[in-house]
C-alpha cells in the first residue's frame, strides 16, 4: 500500500509495518496533507472490518473523555486532543458529526479512523446525523471530496464506513452516549442492540431518532424543528434513566455557546466540541471527562486562530461563498 505523496512507498506486510504506516498517515493528516485515493480506500476497508464487529452500543470503561461534534474543524480537533491528554494516553468517545461544514471533513474523519485502527480500545466512534450520504451531499463533505479528488470515490468509501459506526456507547453501565437523543420507539438500551444499523440512516424510526432528536422543555414527545427526530423532555429522560438504571445521557448534536449544557437536574448533558462553529458562531467548545468514580469534569477550549504566529494562513478564509447575508 503506497500511502504518502512524497514518493516513498510503505508496504503493509506485518502488523509492525502497518502501525508504522498508520503513524505516517497520521502525521500527514495532522498537517492537512493530501492522502491518495487508494490509501483512503485501504483505510476505509480496514475500518469497516474493525467496526463490523462492534455492537450497536459499545461498552466503554472509565476514565474516558466524551467529545461532541467536530464538523471538519481539523485544527480544533488537534487542539481537543492536546487539551485532553491525547489518544496515546487517554480513552475517547466521539459522539459523531465528524464531517460537514468545516474545511477539513476528510482529514478529521480519517484522523479519527486512523486512531481507531491504531488504538482500537482507546477510541469509540459513534454515528452522527451527518454521517449519511444524504446529509453530506447538502452540508459540504461531498463537495469537499469533489474539490480535493475531482471524483466522488473517496466520499463513497467514507459513506460505507459511516454505515458501520456504532449507534451509541455505555460507560461502566451508568452513562449512555448517543449523538442526538431518545426515541419514542426505544425504552431500553437492549432494544437499540437489535437495530440493524448497517444501512443509510432512515428518515424515521428508532435509528433516525437516536441521531436526530433534541432535549427541550416539553411535556412529552414533540415535533422537531429540524424535520427529523423528536423533541423530548425531562419526563422522557427521567423514565429512560430509571428504566435502564443509568445516571446520565451524554449527547451532542446541538450547538452550545458555552461548550456544554446540563439539563434536567443533571440527567442529560449536551457536549459541543467545534469551537467558533463554521468559523463564525463565536462559541467555545468542551469535552467531558468521566473518571473512575463517574465524576464529571469539563475541559473548555477555544478555536485556533485562522493564522499562525508567523501570519501564515492555516484555515482557508477564501471560501467560495461567504456565509453571511450581504
Amino acid at each position: 500500500m503506497n500511502c504518502n505523496n512524497s514518493g516513498k512507498t510503505y508496504m503493509v506486510t506485518l502488523e509492525g509495518t502497518r502501525q508504522m504506516n498508520l503513524d505516517k498517515i497520521i502525521i500527514l493528516l495532522k498537517q492537512g496533507k493530501h492522502i491518495r485515493e487508494d490509501c483512503v480506500y485501504s483505510l476505509c476497508i480496514q475500518a469497516q472490518e474493525l467496526l463490523m464487529n462492534e455492537s450497536n452500543v459499545t461498552h466503554v470503561d472509565t476514565p474516558v473523555t466524551i467529545c461532541g461534534d467536530i464538523h471538519g474543524q481539523l485544527h480544533d480537533l488537534l487542539t481537543l486532543f492536546e487539551k485532553s491528554g491525547g489518544v496515546e494516553k487517554s480513552r475517547y468517545i466521539f459522539l459523531g458529526d465528524f464531517v460537514d461544514r468545516g474545511f477539513y471533513s476528510l482529514e478529521s474523519f480519517l484522523l479519527l479512523l486512523c486512531y481507531k485502527l491504531r488504538y482500537p480500545d482507546r477510541i469509540t466512534l459513534i454515528r452522527g446525523n451527518h454521517e449519511t450520504r444524504q446529509i453530506t451531499k447538502v452540508y459540504g463533505f461531498y463537495d469537499e471530496i469533489m474539490r480535493k479528488y475531482g471524483n466522488s470515490n473517496v466520499w463513497r468509501y467514507c459513506c460505507e464506513v459511516f454505515d458501520y459506526l456504532s449507534l451509541g456507547a455505555i460507560i461502566n453501565e451508568r452513562v449512555f452516549c448517543i449523538h442526538g437523543g431518545l426515541s419514542p420507539d426505544i425504552t431500553t438500551i437492549d432494544e437499540i442492540r437489535s437495530i440493524d444499523r448497517k444501512q443509510e440512516v432512515p428518515h424515521e424510526g428508532a435509528m433516525c431518532d437516536l441521531l436526530w432528536s433534541d432535549p427541550d422543555e416539553v411535556d412529552t414527545w414533540s415535533l422537531s424543528p429540524r424535520g427529523a427526530g423528536f423533541l423530548f423532555g425531562k419526563g422522557e429522560v427521567d423514565q429512560f434513566l430509571q428504566t435502564n438504571n443509568i445516571e446520565l445521557i451524554a449527547r451532542a448534536h446541538q450547538l452550545v455557546m458555552e461548550g456544554y449544557k446540563e439539563m434536567f437536574d443533571g440527567g442529560l448533558v449536551t457536549v459541543w466540541s467545534a469551537p467558533n462553529y463554521c468559523y463564525r458562531c463565536g462559541n467555545v467548545a468542551a469535552v467531558l471527562t468521566i473518571d473512575g468514580q463517574l465524576e464529571r469534569s469539563y475541559t473548555i477550549f477555544d478555536a485556533v486562530q485562522s493564522q499562525n504566529g508567523m501570519g501564515h494562513t492555516i484555515i482557508p478564509t477564501k471560501k467560495p461563498q461567504m456565509d453571511y447575508f450581504l
Binding site: V138, G227, A228, Q254, L255, V256, M257, F325
Partner: peptide, 16 residues
Amino acid sequence: LKSLQFLDEVEELKIM
C-alpha cells in the same frame, strides 16, 4: 420550509 431541506442546526440559525 421544513419540508424543503433538513435544517441541521436551529441554534446556528438563531445566532445568525
